[in-house]
Design a protein around this nucleic acid. Structure first.
Lengths: 159, 159
DNA sequence: TTTAAATCCGACTAAATTTGTCGGGTTTAA
DNA sequence: TTAAACCCGACAAATTTAGTCGGATTTAAA
């Protein structure tokens, strides 16, 4: 699989929704729940995480709600993931170095590539902002990779 | 979190290991298990998936083992993930269209961005080959994104 | 021809993680 | 005072992932 958690999905949906609102217009957790089938309590917690991390600001009480607290162009996907799910860890191998008994003790030429793929992914998400998602304009320079492009869906699989 | 499954990790480690071998040199499941702390049965299954999908070939019997069946430059991470874990699905929203009751019925300007992020990630992994991982030369054109770069680790988080 | 090392594979269990719920509390406009 | 909203920790359910078990098949070599 390899999919984003629901929390991240809810966070991105919420941020995108708020990014479409005018300055000063508040969005409630309830509104988001109803429009996007988000369980209310979870949605609320996600919004609270986003608030604690400064992406949005909240107004309490009746007529309260949330609004973006930052320019949509300055909120990137890496940070959103980190805010609601904790730091990205792509491969355990890159983290649990103590559990690795590779032949070379000081330098493992397997682990290193795994760390790289992890870092690259973080950097990739770091280049995608909420504004990019709104505009559908994710920077696409990385398409000029050095192996053949292919049409989807992917053809391999066990399941 | 957002990390790769162990199976993908084992697959990449195994492929990298075999890519370092000379043409015709076989690698056994046992060898991989011992060198990289991979549970033997799981490791075996992963290798069998890779075999079924044509990335490696197997030789049965005593003195048997596995070897790359393709140029390391032609094996990309997207396909490896698909082979051992099934097709990538980053956001359920992009897949479970029926469960989405967004206001606009025919066109959802929230779901569309989610689909895009999913496709972009697939394409990103598609640009990374086993050979790139060996050489530590992942195409890095995408670094010229349009939002500020930042040093890691990421500063936000709840946990 | 027997043995042992190896690949192959389906079904199952255990562990971990994710997802969602419950039961509260606080803030504030009306 | 009420009700709508945000806030939040602890818990339960569900799902997914990781790993195990019990085999079967293939084949080099003793």
């Amino acid at each position: 699989m390899f999919k984003m958690s629901k929390k991240v999905e809810y966070a991105l949906i919420s941020l995108l929704y708020m990014a479409e609102r005018k300055e000063g217009e508040l969005t409630t957790a309830r509104e988001l729940s109803e429009n996007f089938n988000i369980p209310q309590e979870i949605g609320g917690k996600v919004l609270q995480s986003l608030t604690r991390n400064g992406f949005i600001s909240s107004v309490q009480g009746v007529k309260g709600g949330y609004q973006l607290a930052m320019d949509a162009a300055k909120i990137n996907v890496t940070d959103v993931i980190a805010a609601v799910d904790g730091p990205l860890q792509v491969v355990g191998c890159a983290v649990e170095a103590d559990k690795c008994n590779c032949e070379q003790l000081s330098y493992c030429n397997i682990r290193s590539p795994m760390e790289i793929i992890q870092l690259k992914l973080i950097e990739f998400f770091n280049t995608i902002s909420i504004k990019d998602l709104q505009k559908n304009t994710i920077p696409s320079a990385f398409f000029h990779g050095n192996i053949e492009q292919r049409s989807y869906p992917v053809k391999f699989s066990d399941q």
